[in-house]
Every structure is written in C-alpha cells, then in structure tokens.
C-alpha cells in the first residue's frame, strides 16, 4: 500500500536497530555516569559535565568529522580497534553506534541526572539506616523513584538518534543495509526528486516523533499520566 521499496524498509529497520542499540547502551552507561555526576564532589565533575553536554553545542558535522578521524587508522580509537584485532569503525554499523552514543549522550544523561538529583538525600540515608547497602538502596529506592527520568531518557535518546543526519553521514556514509538510515534515505530521495517516497518516509518520521512525545507528555509524565506522581 505504501510506496516503499525494500531499500526504504531496510533503512527503517536499520534506524530502529541503531536507536534501540544506542539507547540501551546509553542507559547502561549513562546511569552510573549520571549518578556519579549527582553524588560526586570531585573537581573533575565540571569537566565531565561539560564534555557530556558538548555535542549539544557542536554542528553534527564537526562531531562526525572528528569521530571519523579518531576512528580512522591513525586516530586513537582506530589504533585501539587495530590493537584488539577488530575491523575499523568508519563506515560500519558499529561506528555509527559509537558515534551516535556520543552525540545522544546528553539526551540520556541529563534526564537521569535531574531525576537522581530530585531524590531527597534523606531517603537514601533512611534506606542505609534500614540496613540497605549501596546496591539495595539504588535498586529499591533510586530506580523506582527515578522511573520518570528513565522514561524521558529513553524516549529522548531514542528519538534523537533516529533523527540524526549530519553526524551519521560523516561517519557512516551511505551503504545500504549497513549505514543508510532513514534520514539519509530521505535525503537521497529528495536529491533524486523522488518526492512521493521522500514524503512517505518524512511523514512517517513526523508521526513517529509525535507519537514519542505523546508517550512522554500525554501518557507518561504529564498531568494524569501513567507515571504521574501526586
């Protein structure tokens, strides 16, 4: 029914796979990072925070350009992958994952950081005084009290990764089934004056983004939402 060819469908699944992978990894990595940022009194805190937020202030092409160099044969990441006997990251799906993680990092870390910072420290102390060690306190108190933050982090991280263009074009190029994402596919259609196909994919992106935001604001955390805290 939809005027989509196999390539377009491939690009959709590739985008979804990339976003899911990046979001999952970022939640795993961002949780301890956000927790550390909230709890630490280390002088490094400011620097780490600035680094986390940096992608928000850079043109995606700049980030993509430096990541391409870093992952290249003479870059530090390239040297590391070479030393580990892995294939080079540029123009591969793994390269997209690594780069997208960096690019979407603030969108995952900041909501988690806000959620963690909003937890009354007294509650953590109360849990400790009730014999809960650090892991139990985190699992029984911190996680349930920051579920809104996790939802926000997951939705914005996912949506932001889906919407990438510049950064993935720099690092991934345009290899069908490997690095050709929906956003690049749309660009290709427009370049080729194939507006109907561009419309279909672009319209799907709009609907998708709207649905994600609806999940976040309408059913998630807004007034009357599922996760509303009275």
């Amino acid at each position: 029914m939809l005027p989509l060819d196999a390539e377009a469908i491939d690009s959709i699944f590739l985008s979804l796979r990339l976003s899911a992978t990046v979001t999952g990894l970022l939640i795993l990595l961002g949780t301890p990072l956000a927790w550390w940022l909230v709890r630490t009194r280390s002088p490094l805190k400011g620097m780490v925070e600035a680094f986390v937020v940096l992608p928000l202030f850079l043109p995606p092409t700049v980030l993509g350009f430096y990541m391409l160099l870093a992952m290249g044969p003479s870059g530090p990441i390239g040297a590391l992958t070479k030393a580990l006997g892995l294939q080079g990251l540029p123009f591969t799906f793994s390269g997209l994952v690594v780069t997208s993680m960096l690019y979407s990092l603030p969108f995952v870390v900041q909501p988690l950081q806000n959620a963690f910072a909003g937890i009354e420290p007294r509650l953590l102390e109360a849990a400790q005084s009730l014999r809960a060690g650090p892991w139990a306190t985190f699992g029984r108190i911190v996680l349930p009290l920051s579920k809104r933050g996790f939802l926000t982090a997951a939705v914005t991280g996912f949506a932001h990764t889906i919407g990438e263009f510049g950064v993935v074009l720099m690092v991934g190029g345009n290899i069908p089934g490997e690095t050709r994402l929906v956003s690049i596919e749309i660009y290709d259609y427009v370049e080729a004056f194939d507006y109907p196909k561009a419309h279909t994919l672009a319209g799907m992106m709009v609907a998708f983004a709207f649905f994600m935001l609806l999940l976040l604001y309408g059913f998630g955390v807004g007034r009357g939402g599922l996760l509303r805290r009275s």
Binding site: R122, L123, A127, S129, P144, R229
Partner: peptide, 19 residues
C-alpha cells in the same frame, strides 16, 4: 558503614519512602 550498624534512626521529617 551505616547499613552495617545495628541502629534505628528516625529523622525529623520521618523520611518514609513515597513509592
């Protein structure tokens, strides 16, 4: 550490777990 001390602690504001 606190969680290994056999104490009971009551805070000024009760600090009950809201969830």
């Amino acid at each position: 550490p606190c969680h290994r001390r056999p104490i009971g602690y009551v805070f000024q504001d009760a600090a009950l777990f809201p969830h």
